[in-house]
Design a protein around this nucleic acid. Structure first.
Lengths: 345, 345
DNA sequence: CTGTTAGCGCATTCAC
DNA sequence: GTGAATGCGCTAACAG
């Protein structure tokens, strides 16, 4: 073995005094090889520190045993938890996970897809920045490898999606607030262009209108300052709210901080429910009630769906028909104190 | 193009009526190709949706333009933030990032290394579960690709490491507590086998002993219950502590929750500083003072070091001599309220 | 049970 | 400027 480069199969074969095929058989399970040869070859492999070169296998038309995952950000606990689950499934299927981040830039979605295709990943998991992107749909249709979206779908496409029931979740949260007697529930969205947020808005609106209440949606919260401004304005208005529904994590936290700063009694003066759970929600005072998404499940199910398709593809040839409708996972309302429920434990 | 399989370079060549070489030139920058041919080939490439097959390039002895990263868990904000930074550097170097998780199982460290080598990653970033592992050191020495460790080193090896100054950080936190007049500072470690934790213990011990105070280390905290037991015992003892130093994130949070539950005035009765910052540290009441690690920097610097080595390798042939000593990043004390400092802003 | 052979898709000589 | 030929490391027929 030349220094600086890894040993190859033929080197192993030579040193072991056998043919290439035999070595190949050994590294692929050792079937049809006599015990002595097997042992000898394995010894040489160990001695040389030989590792089969995946690239060569791939070239022979085999799977790369890698999958790609495209998410907005790995630093986001939601997606990093998804990624962890995906990684676990990949590992269970003897595959590796390649992750890329887009910062919600739709352009990078495409760029990353192309790059991953170039590396011949066996399949792709995407949380697309733009659910209305025809470009992604079209590209996905061409690359001839399975694609599954998670958290957000690609609309007008047949790409399988694993989502949570954002509509129902927000609706349920709103109804819960109404049960607590809240009459003027304001919805703080944070950036409102994402599919998930829009679904949640729909859910909020449905619940509010059904109860004959007024729908008030504020999309201006981007950081602490904008939250402060928004909430102060709300409190100063004639139509003072008695509850807040925040549609994403950061919005929930900004709102909480503002309420804490202003010394607003929560939930007495203003109840609060946030969409999406976060680590210290139970530690804050009051503990924050939230709609909790099954984060690990999203990743796990999406990855499982992807690996299923590999099997299907191997068997059936073309596309599997396994459900064109998205898989929708249930969210659940976690009642802590900020909504008005009694504190427990 | 046969359905179910991606188009190849020769298919492009055929449809464009040119030779393979020409297509190859086009996809590699388009040098030495006449404008017309260039345009024609590019059109065919677009029409076919052709993407060069990385595997084939690799087989020709080129880099895979992938790097591997082995971390305990992606769900841990610390490592996912590192991973995000690494990913960004990889991307800037036109490379992809493959991540694997070990759950701190030393055996999986090795397993993952082998798998990644098989995929011919250009380099490896590892946060090893066991800093004393000779197996990792030996394997790293054989695989002939650059390896850099982060957060934790491999002791007794020349593998470059990017660490933070755990010793100094804990020492600094302890000294700060002492400046606040604390006399009986108890250190809660949480699992104490990790290299980082042991360094922090050293720092705590050094500061405490230097001040002529008693060193009390409790390694029993694993969850809320054990934290409750530990803290209640401490408070019931004759030698009642007046400050807590918690050496890892989860320990800090368990401790905080217990103190909150027991209604212990913080910092009046018991001051608290935690090692490692966390998202809601400023939102809690009191806001938790912490030693903050430059998380993104760890990932960024480690990745940059890795890519530097590729250049070096290409130039120098053998190993680069760029610093055998670990790169140590500074931590910083973030003074919030729980240590006794006045609340600000 | 084992070896020989022929490509997989591409980059790279070297001629034209 | 361009193309034909060669081989990277490996697997999959086929022989033996």
């Amino acid at each position: 073995m030349k220094k600086g480069s890894l040993p190859t199969l033929s080197e192993v074969a030579r040193k072991a005094g056998v043919g290439n095929t035999t070595v190949s058989r050994v590294i692929n399970g050792g079937e049809r090889v006599s015990p002595e040869t097997l042992a000898r070859v394995q010894k040489v492999i160990a001695a040389l520190g030989y590792r089969p070169n995946q690239a060569a296998r791939v070239l022979k038309g085999h799977r790369t045993r890698t999958i790609g995952m495209i998410v907005p950000s790995l630093a986001d606990p939601f997606f990093s938890s998804c990624a962890e689950a995906v990684q676990a499934v990949a590992r269970a299927n003897d595959s590796l996970l390649i992750v890329t981040a887009t910062q919600n830039d739709p352009h990078k979605d495409l760029e990353n897809m192309k790059m991953l295709v170039s590396h011949r990943v066996d399949g792709l998991l995407i949380a697309p920045a733009n659910s209305k992107s025809d470009a992604i749909r079209d590209l996905a249709a061409r690359i001839s490898i399975p694609v599954v979206t998670l958290d957000r779908p690609i609309l007008n496409s047949t790409i399988p999606a694993v989502l949570t029931d954002n509509y129902q979740g927000a609706r349920c949260a709103t109804e819960h607030l109404i049960e607590h007697g809240c009459k003027r529930i304001v919805c703080l969205t944070g950036e409102s262009t994402l599919f998930t947020i829009q679904e949640r808005m729909r859910g909020y609106r449905a619940a509010v209108e059904e109860a004959g209440l007024t729908c008030t949606i504020n999309t201006s919260v981007k950081d602490y300052k904008s939250a402060e401004y928004a909430i102060e304005s709300l409190l100063a208005s004639a139509h003072q709210p008695d509850a807040l529904l925040t549609l994403k994590n950061s919005t929930t936290i900004f709102a909480f901080e503002v309420l804490q700063k202003l010394n607003i009694p929560v939930p007495q003066q203003l109840a609060l429910i946030g969409f999406d759970d976060f680590e210290l929600a139970t530690t804050l005072r009051p503990a924050v009630s939230v709609i909790q998404q099954p984060v690990e499940d999203i990743g796990r199910v999406a990855a499982e769906l992807l690996f299923e398709r590999f099997e299907d593809g191997a068997r059936a040839g073309t596309k599997s028909r396994s459900g064109k409708r998205p898989v929708t996972l249930e969210n659940c309302l976690v009642r802590r104190s900020s909504c008005g429920c009694p504190a427990h434990s």
